[in-house]
Write a protein that binds this DNA or RNA. Structure first.
Lengths: 129, 129
DNA sequence: CTATCTGCAAATAATTTGCATGTAC
DNA sequence: GTACATGCAAATTATTTGCAGATAG
């Protein structure tokens, strides 16, 4: 009981996730569905939810948009470009100093989600050219 | 043209916001509506959106929940307690080191939203008591 | 006065869910 | 064979929007 099964749909969802850039569930659905029209919306949402619960993918909630999914598990923050809207990965130095400050506020940190706003490398280049 | 007007509804929404702890738009609506049944859902959503656009309040998007609103404008991060679910304010040391690291990734930071997960002071105390 | 705002109710849009059928193991 | 997974379509839920009447300045 409780055994998670490996299905074609799960493989297709995971595959689409790796080919897309921080997609929403609907974007994953559209990608999978365009290639395999029998796959349903409900399945894509359920599969992504299962992946997130199982830790195979990371669920990302950023401001002003739907829930996104990220196949990169290495801890990292996200940057939202104010010009093109793209979501970029931002790797950070370690958080020990922050965790310590938070602890002095009484909050014991064991995980985090960080979203930065700014301008991505591509847009920065175009603007300054 | 474009002048923003001061209305009773806006005052009530702002007042409810300050009395609630990181509420969702629906929670603000329920609070306002319970005291003034004529105020509509649409108005509360519109007023909160206007406040956020005007910078009078901060819109906060955290994982696994609806959009929340925060009347505290001083820059700060949020902690989500894994025990009681409460959203706590977490004030951070300055981000200059992080901003510099991000810049070396090509992303120019000009704002951020941070959510930490962990255990809040109250729950920490109860657990260890 | 008149541009902005509000109330209402209908429209959107993301996500969830019930149920009968399909299929991994 | 059987428990878990899927497809479908309906249900939920947060949020948005059109429009006619109300009101702030």
């Amino acid at each position: 009981m409780g055994a998670v099964r490996n299905t074609r749909q799960k493989q297709m969802v995971y595959d689409a996730l790796t080919r897309l850039d921080h997609p929403t569930a609907t974007e994953v659905y559209e990608r999978v569905h365009s290639e395999h029209p029998t796959v349903s919306r409900g399945t894509v949402f359920r599969v992504l939810g299962g992946f997130a619960a199982g830790g195979q993918v990371r669920r990302v909630t950023l401001a002003d948009s739907d829930t996104r999914y990220d196949h990169t598990l290495e801890p990292h923050a996200h940057g939202r470009c104010r010009v093109c809207g793209r979501v970029c990965d931002v790797f950070l130095p370690d958080f020990s100093a922050i965790a310590q400050t938070a602890r002095s506020n009484g909050f014991r940190i064991d995980g985090c989600e960080v979203e930065f706003y700014g301008v991505c490398a591509d847009c920065s280049q175009k603007t300054n050219a």
